[in-house]
């Protein structure tokens, strides 16, 4: 060992000993840590699986043909359904989507295409707005639509949900537009086409699957919200005949029937919760599948 200095040999021996001596301790620490992490996973899964399992089992028990085709009945009278809430949710969310998505995607195009202070400000404000409590947005819609008109309405609920969807549509839309290859822009501009046309004809078309994904995400987020509807659509036991009237919605049925002490209303709440869950999961899974297909496509 002529070339290895003495102190180095000492240190080497010391390190080897320490590595061996500490090995058991390190291994135990590792097993304990892994066990704690695994325990965390188990603790996390129990309530989450319980929620899904109970919603499915209790919800299916409440489902029937009548459930989806009839109007609600008062507590104690069997045979009620949620058809008005199902239709109401579709109308309120559909209208909100019509209001929010086009605006959202135009702003997304702006963010994807422009740099500068305005774009950064918009991006930051939109990010912060995505985290605004839904109930405050409900109050906003109340103040600008319900108060001046003097009555609760489906329209005010759509306004609230539109404001709620806007940040999601903008950020998801921006991501979708950014995945469009840059060559496409340059090719279009090199041909002398005006930017507006390039944007419309080339970019929007190739970002379309991404924009559909973004739309599905935004709609799925909005359809489960109840808080913004509390002071706008406010719920109803009958079919609304116009957008100016109070309207039923699935999420409101879950809340209003769920807090009642009557078992048959609670049953309706579970059945409606399952309906909502199925809709949200379908929207999410399809947007996920679409996103995956799109990724494979661009690769």
């Amino acid at each position: 060992m002529s070339v290895v200095a003495a102190s180095q040999v000492d240190r080497r021996t010391l390190i080897r000993q320490s590595a061996r001596k500490s090995h058991r301790r390190r291994q135990i620490a590792g097993v304990v840590a892994a066990a704690l992490c695994g325990l965390g996973l188990c603790i996390a899964l129990v309530p989450l699986i319980s929620i899904v399992a109970l919603t499915v089992s209790k919800g299916i028990a409440a489902w029937s043909v009548d459930f989806f085709t009839r109007l609600p009945t008062p507590a104690g009278i069997p045979g009620g359904g949620i058809v008005n809430a199902l239709v109401g949710s579709l109308i309120i969310d559909g209208l909100a989507a019509v209001m929010a998505l086009p605006v959202g995607f135009i702003v997304a195009l702006f963010l994807a295409e422009h740099e500068g202070r305005l774009a950064n400000t918009v991006r930051f404000v939109v990010d912060v707005a995505a985290g605004l409590p839904a109930i405050t947005i409900g109050l906003f819609a109340y103040a600008i639509v319900v108060l001046p008109e003097g009555h609760f309405s489906a329209l005010s609920a759509s306004v609230a949900l539109a404001v709620l969807m806007l940040p999601i549509a903008i950020r998801a839309g921006e991501t979708a537009i950014r995945t469009v290859p840059q060559d496409l822009w340059e090719a279009g501009i090199a041909l002398g086409i005006r930017r507006a046309r390039v944007a419309r004809s080339l970019v929007i078309v190739s970002a379309l699957p991404g924009l559909v994904t973004a739309s599905l995400l935004a709609i799925s987020r909005a359809i489960g919200e109840a808080a913004p509807l509390l002071f706008t659509a406010i719920g109803s036991q009958v079919f609304a005949t116009s957008l100016g009237q109070p309207m039923a919605s699935l999420s409101l049925v879950v809340y209003f029937d769920g807090i009642q002490p009557y078992p048959d209303l609670q049953r309706t709440a579970w059945g409606t919760a399952l309906t909502l869950l199925v809709i949200v999961m379908l929207l999410n899974v399809s947007s996920r599948l679409l996103a995956r297909r799109m990724r494979r496509f661009t690769r």
Binding site: L48, S50, I51, V52, L54, T55, S220, R221, I223, G224, E225, A226, S251, V254, Y255, G258, A269, W270, A273, L276, L277, V280, M281, N284
Partner: peptide, 12 residues
């Protein structure tokens, strides 16, 4: 599960 509506969490 992150997409489950909060009203369902409340009901449960």
């Amino acid at each position: 599960l992150a997409a489950v509506p909060s009203v369902v969490y409340g009901l449960w």
